[in-house]
Structures are given as structure tokens and as C-alpha cells.
Amino acid sequence: MSKTMNLTLHVWRQKGGTDVGGFETYKAQDISEHMSFLEMLDVVNERLLADGKEPIAFDSDCREGICGMCGMVINGVPHGPNAATTTCQLHMRHFNDGDEVTIEPWRASAFPVLRDLVVDRGAFDRIIQAGGYISASSGSAPEANGLPVPKADADRAMDAAACIGCGACVAACPNASAMLFVAAKAAHLGALPQGQPERWERVKKMVAQMDAEGFGHCSNHYECMAACPKEISVDFIAQLNRDLVRATVVEREHEEKSGGAG
């Protein structure tokens, strides 16, 4: 028979982006150990709704650890106590009867709170828009096997590409830095031959956008890697640093010449 538990939750509640927020305390009762953390919040929310109150707003979508939509700081740790686990994949068997659980949103000026535990991660989208892609318009692609990619490079690209863009790295970083997110995308594309033509411009643009969004700098605490549900390595940050130095110090500046087909 599965165990049940009673918990006391301290949850950040904030009506809207410009409102002042604060912690509210709720009881989570008869929680099965087999529930996911978000299902536990679903149960709390059903009860709040029954009492005529507004449920706690939190983001989630796939609930299988891949979409990157969910995320909250649980007892001081982004995505909670389990390594390599998103909030939606955290299960209540890792908690004990009587536990007090503090739940807070990601904290960063670049991730403003929209409501309760919901934050705006548009900054990540804008970083990708700044250059986190390979320019390959539909229909223009050459034969897929025309350009062999060493398996080691493809695997490294995949390691970096596993990032789900959840923002836990920023939430965990003492400086609220987005370096791991930026590094992962730059390393994914930079590891592949297809990514070489735009490699140096890409890192410059992405890093400039990262700074413009107001994220902090990296001071090598490696909290990001510890919080990352996909265990993206800080090795990619070293790669980003190296690429940026090369891009700005060694590589020539590209100049657009005017004129065209006559």
C-alpha cells in the first residue's frame, strides 16, 4: 500500500508582474508518495478552488521532463532535491510526512514574475533569435550524407543540444547568469560542420544579447550544472569563452559590401 503524507507549503504568491508578492502557507494533506510534485500542487489547487480561492499559478506542459516549461525553486534548489530531474518528474516519495516545503519562482531580473510561480523566459527566445541557429532555408539543403560528421562531434553536439531551456541554470546561479544556456546552444551548433560558417558571428551576437537581457556574469560556481535537469556540462562554457575570444580577437570583422546583381 502506498504511503501518504501531510506537508506544509510556503508558496510565493503574486497577483501580477507589478504587484507585490509574498509567501502564503498551505497544508497539503493525504499526499500519496507516488504523486509527482506537480500533481501534489494540483491537489492543493483543487482544494483552493473548492474554497473559492485562486489556485497557485505554475507553468507545466509535457510533464515528462522534456518541454522545459515547468520549474520552481523547491526548498532552495531549482527543480528540487533530485539530480537530473525536472520538477514534473520529481515524485513525493522523496519527501517525508511533516516536511515544510518552500516554493519560489525562478529569481532573475531577466525572468520577471508574471504570476505566482510563473516567470517570463522570453529572454531565452531573444538570445536564440540573436543568432542561435544555422541559416538553412527550407529547400536549400544538400544531400544529408554529403557531409560526414565525425561521430564524436555529433555526440558532443547532441550532449549540448539536450538543453530544454527551462532556466534552472539561471535560477541556481548566484549571479543569475545564463552562460550555461547560451554555451549549450553555441556548442551544439559550433560542434557541427554545418554550424561553422556562422560560428564566430553567432557567439558574438548571442553573448551580446545575453548581456543586454541583464543576466549576471559567470564566476564559475558551477551551480548551473548541478541544477541542470539534463546535466549539461560547464565544459561548454569554457568552449563559449574560447570561441568568443577567438571571434572578437582573431577573426576578421565581416563587412557588408553594397551593390548586387546588375
Binding site: E104, R107, A172, A176, G214, S219, H221, E223
Partner: peptide, 26 residues
């Protein structure tokens, strides 16, 4: 850098547990 970083997290956590960083780094 520090003046930027101070602005990067204007509202801090009530509870924050670091997992791997060192005393030296902090």
C-alpha cells in the same frame, strides 16, 4: 561586473541551497 550582477537578481530567495560551489568561490 558586480554592479551588473547586483541588478541581475533584485529579489533574492527566501531559501537558497548551494549544491556544489566552494567557500572560496563564494
Amino acid at each position: 561586473l558586480v554592479s551588473r550582477t547586483a541588478a541581475a537578481r533584485p529579489i533574492g530567495y527566501r531559501l537558497k541551497k548551494n549544491q556544489v560551489t566552494t567557500y572560496a568561490a563564494l
